[in-house]
């Protein structure tokens, strides 16, 4: 078995981060359903930045 542990760790952190973003967005929409569209935009942006960490781990470090 072989692989890169840093990518796994980054993926784990990004997964937790995306989950937390989804949690925050879902509870925010639950509290204020009228603000669903601005919340969606914020959540999508936050998820995109969180996910990008995996790609940094994949490409910025030497294998």
């Amino acid at each position: 078995m072989s692989g890169s542990i840093h990518v796994g760790l980054a993926a784990m952190g990004a997964g937790i981060g995306v989950g937390l973003t989804g949690l925050g967005a879902a509870s925010a929409v639950g509290r204020n359903p009228g603000a669903a569209t601005p919340i969606l935009v914020q959540a999508i942006l936050a998820i995109a930045f969180t996910e990008a960490i995996v790609f940094y781990a994949l490409y910025l470090l030497p294998h």
């Binding site: 995109a48 930045f49 996910e51 790609f55 490409y59």
Partner: peptide, 13 residues
């Protein structure tokens, strides 16, 4: 750097 990574993350996602 974050802007340059956008096409990469878009395509890989």
């Amino acid at each position: 750097v974050s802007i340059l990574f956008r096409p990469i993350s878009l395509s890989f996602r």
